[in-house]
Amino acid sequence: MNSRLADRIATFIFWTGALLVITVLGAMIVYILYHGGKYISWDFLTKPPQVVRAGGGIGPQIFNSFYLLFLSMVFTVPVGLLGGVYLAEYARNNKLTEAIRLSIETLNSLPSIVVGLFGLLVFVNMTGWGYTLISGALALAVINLPLMVRISEESIRGVPDSLREASLALGANHWQTIYRVVLPSAFPGLISGAIITSGRVFGEAAALLFTAGMSSPALDFSQWNIFHPASPLNPFRPAETLAVHIWKVNTEGLIPDLRRVADGSAAVLILVVLGFNLAARWLGRKIYRQMTAA
């Protein structure tokens, strides 16, 4: 067998593999959108759900999902970024660093239901908060931190050493160099990373069942006092997210239009996650272009 033939065969195999993955993913997305897309309407997106009657919407669930995501990012981004900076800029090759990396890897491979139960013990019971948005946000942060740390580290490592040297040679110290040169240069990667991690937890359900809870109080969207129990912004209220809602409707829903709500919600969910990923690419590229081109 000559090498040209081998090359052809290898190329063919890789193409088939890639095609297979794309087909499976594409089929799933098309299937979900086909079944759910037709139910998406303004009413569906804004109305509160019904318990026993038909015609409910998913308005509060959508709001909860975004708000919970925002809260969890408030923890994830700074902590993940600091971890990434530490690993990329300060950590030496020693036992401590190895231990940190091992912990991150382990954390990353924890099943989310385990994180949920951990959250129940720590963020719900030990803190005495009960099922709250904040407990859910912390559980999501636990799930997301490893990825955020890794993406931060990679973006920071991706900044060429020549820029660090240029800064140091001008008399900047290490911290000034990180803060003024490295982080701005890593910014496009960091933004994409943050958005991608957002997409990943937006669809998370298992970790939230026992932390943010499976119910929402009746929300009063005109109540902006964040300590009021009916305020949508109150972080110490329980909150059912979209993904949890899908799970709940499917398992114990009493409404007659169960399929409509479940399929419609799934379609909304997948559209949002798709949106996150597209936004991440678009924004990262845009910022990169702005920083590099004329």
Partner: peptide, 25 residues
Amino acid sequence: RKRIGMVFQRPNPFPMSVYDNIAYG
């Protein structure tokens, strides 16, 4: 390093405006 400055083999301007590059130091 303020007193002894260095120019490198490959031009390595920061990914910032010309102005910010010069004003960096």
